[in-house]
Design a protein around this nucleic acid. Structure first.
Lengths: 226, 226
DNA sequence: AACAAAAATGAAATAGTTTCACTTTCATGA
DNA sequence: TCATGAAAGTGAAACTATTTCATTTTTGTT
């Protein structure tokens, strides 16, 4: 599973990190040539991954199948992603980006005099609703965990909703003296990841409602200790 | 990753579930013939997995390498385990068994008039110490999670220290009316799994000590809500 | 329309898992 | 003691996936 070698492959591409180039979502049909073709191919590959994960699980994500579904050849896939893991990670990051955007928006419209606990509670609600609305997120989260297992070092835990939403949250709500304790940040990060994972596989509405309250309690415990 | 077919393969063997046959650990060298050879081969395969996982991670677990390290051929491996996943799961279960044994022993020697919280605290300490003492446990836990992702249904969450130690714990400490809430049991199960995972990858003693207190707080929160 | 860079191709190399027809081992009782 | 067959073991070959790379196609520029 873990790869032994990881050759740079002649610069696979800008990489799965950037993504700041073109405003996604626009241009439904018009084939913008040079730069555009590449962007569309990359997007098509990521979309194919999401569709496959949502319908058949991460196990169905085969480089060949993804390439086929995206209407390109396998070779092309490898121009955009270093390997299968990189592809899955990029697809996961894409879902995280959307969830983080939703959370960031909520954080902005939060009332001025709101208490930390209430703010955390609201963000959790937005987080869960957004995650629920992305059918591939649960599967991609699992795949991501299999590739990048839990790390003690928070600095390596870059991708993840909690990690990305925590900075602006703390900036606004933490008392100035409260230095971010890496141990507690890591804990909150993996804790929420797992609990959301559990939430997303919970089927009945009653169980979901109950679980939300449980998650809330643990989140508040972790946040209170920050 | 997920297998499409799972052919019974002419009864792979008693299976990784039972294990009630022979007292493990005894018989260091003596080659007991008929039944004994098989037991030793199986044990050698599982030991090879543990060694590989401990030294090079679960990614190094290749059917060929495991068979080589155990001194048998690949074909033999498949007489004892249905497939690679089954092998990893069995190796994980073997480590869990040892940790559960340690916890069960602690549960027995707990003072009569002990409070639930204190009992939980002590069990956690034994759990963490035992897990720490098995170098392959962390890696196998990760592998297990990749194979059997988080399930909402507690009844499918058989293997796991929390799941196995919880029944005797509740039998002794839960007030008779407290029916075991499956949602909360699942939560406690995955929660502890992840936090122990994080604990095991935490390197510095100070961070470990701090994390122990954090885990304790979350465990007590979960137990209190049981 | 000629050119070069960007993008795409897909057959072949690689790496791993799994099967299966066959051989070896060994307790048993004739 | 040795013939028997069930249990255990073997390993080459079939499969299933990932990854490479020499080559071709597309596209913007001149």
């Amino acid at each position: 599973m873990t790869k032994f070698i990881h050759p740079p492959t002649d610069e696979p591409f800008p990489g799965s990190a950037g993504g700041a180039a073109g405003l996604a979502g626009i241009e439904p049909a018009r084939p913008v040539p040079v730069q555009g073709r590449a962007l569309r191919t990359r997007a098509a590959l990521l979309a194919a991954v999401e569709t496959l994960v949502a319908s058949e699980g991460a196990g169905a994500v085969t480089t060949t199948r993804v390439a086929d579904a995206a209407g390109v050849s396998v070779g092309t896939l490898y121009r955009y992603f270093a390997d299968r893991d990189d592809l899955l990670l990029a697809a996961y990051d894409a879902t995280v980006e959307r969830i983080v955007a939703a959370c960031a928006k909520e954080l902005e419209i939060l009332p001025d005099a709101i208490a930390v606990e209430e703010a955390a509670r609201r963000l959790l609600a937005v987080y869960l609703d957004a995650a629920e609305a992305i059918p591939s997120h649960a599967g991609l989260l699992k795949a991501m965990r299999a590739i990048r297992p839990v790390e003690a070092d928070q600095s390596d835990e870059r991708s993840g909703v909690v990690a990305e939403i925590l900075a602006p949250f703390l900036a606004r709500f933490a008392s100035p003296g409260t230095a971010a304790d890496p141990v507690r940040l890591s804990l909150l990060n993996v804790l929420m990841g797992t609990l959301v994972d559990l939430y997303l596989v919970t089927r009945t509405p009653e169980d979901r409602a109950k679980l939300r309250r449980e998650i809330e309690a643990h989140m508040l415990l972790a946040v209170a200790r920050l």
